[in-house]
Design a protein around this nucleic acid. Structure first.
Lengths: 166, 166
DNA sequence: CACAACAGTTGCATTGATGCAATCATTGCG
DNA sequence: CGCAATGATTGCATCAATGCAACTGTTGTG
C-alpha cells in the first residue's frame, strides 16, 4: 500500500495494457489535481462551502435562500449566517423577491461571478495545456473517449458535485 | 452563464464534434462526481482535512508529525491538535521515533487504513460500473485514451491533491 | 559543556460551519 | 377574518481548523 503518489510502474503498465479501471483511476487523479490547482488560489478568498454557493448561483441564477440551503445540504439557520458573511464580503447580495415579501433571493455580485469565471478559465487553460502536449491524433482519440465516458457516467447529481464544489 | 449543471446541449455537442477541452471538462465533472460520491459517507466520519492525512499516511507509511503538517500546509500548532482529535478517535496513533526522542511518528491504525481502502474500493467499483455500460470496444478506446491523457497530464504534485483529499 | 537549532506541545484568540429551538413577518387557506 | 404553514432570522451552543507566541525537551555543534 506504499507509494500511492508518484508514478507507479505497475499502475501505468496495467493502464497501457488496457485495464480500464486503473486507467480511469489514474486519469481521475490527474484531473483532480487539475481541478484542485484551478481552485487553490480561490480558496484563499472563500471557503469551499462558500465557493459551492457561488457555483450554484452562477449555474442557476438568483435563488431563494432556503432553496440554496437545501442544495448545499445545510439548514436555514446555518445558511443565513453564511450569507451574512458572503454578503459582507461582497460575493452575493440579498434582494427582496418580486413575488413574495417573505422570500429573499440571493444574487451573485459581479465580483462573485468573476470568481467563478476565473476558476473555470483556469481549469480550461490547464486542460488545454495538457492536450497541447498530445499529437493531434491523440487529442482526437482523447476527446472521443472522454465524450464516450462522460455520456456513460451521466451527469453527476448536483448534490454530489456540491460536496467538492463543482 | 446559466446552466452550469445539467446536460448542456451545447457542451455535449461540442464534445461529440471533438472539442477536446470541452470533452475533458465534462469528463472531469463526471469523475469529480464519482470521487465525491466515493467520499460522501466517509465525510460523516472524518473531516476532509483529516481524510487527507489518512491518505498521505496510507501512501507513504508512518511519518513525522512536522513533515505531515508541512504536507497538508498546516502549522505545527494546528496540526498537533488535529492529531489529538484523530488519535482520540482511533484513526492514527503517535509513536516515539526510533531514531530521535524528540520526533514523533504518526502511524495509521487498522481502522484508519480501512477507511482509506473503503473509499478507494468504492471509487473503483463506481468506475467499473460506468465502464460496464460501454461496449468492450469503447472500453478499450477509453482505457487507451485515459492512459495517454494521464501520461500527458503527469502525476499531480501531492500538494495539489492534498487540497481535495486524494 | 554551553548554546543554538529543532520537534513538538500548549496558551490564547479567531473564524467558519453546524444545528436545535424560539421568534418574527408573510402568505395562503378554510 | 383567523389561524396554520412557510421563509427567514436570531439566540444559543458546539466543534474543527487556523496561526501567533511562548515554552519544554532533545539534538547537535562549536
Amino acid at each position: 500500500m506504499q507509494h500511492e503518489s508518484g508514478h507507479d510502474p505497475v499502475r501505468i503498465e496495467r493502464a497501457l495494457q488496457g485495464d480500464p479501471v486503473e486507467a480511469t483511476l489514474t486519469t481521475s487523479r490527474a484531473l483532480l489535481g487539475l481541478v484542485a490547482r484551478s481552485l487553490s488560489e480561490t480558496l484563499d478568498l472563500v471557503t469551499l462551502p462558500q465557493f459551492r454557493v457561488l457555483v450554484i448561483l452562477a449555474g442557476n441564477g438568483p435563488m431563494r435562500i432556503g432553496e440554496l440551503a437545501k442544495r448545499v445540504r445545510s439548514v436555514p439557520s446555518t445558511f443565513t449566517r453564511s450569507m451574512d458573511r458572503m454578503e459582507q464580503q461582497g460575493w452575493v447580495v440579498r434582494e427582496a423577491s418580486p413575488t413574495s415579501r417573505r422570500e429573499v433571493l440571493v444574487h451573485l455580485t459581479p465580483k462573485g461571478a468573476q470568481l467563478v469565471v476565473e476558476v473555470t478559465d483556469r481549469r480550461r487553460s490547464e486542460i488545454s495545456e495538457v492536450l497541447r502536449r498530445l499529437t493531434p491524433e491523440d487529442a482526437e482519440i482523447v476527446a472521443r473517449a472522454f465524450a464516450v465516458f462522460a455520456a456513460a457516467a451521466a451527469e453527476p447529481p448536483p448534490e454530489d458535485l456540491v460536496l467538492l464544489g463543482l
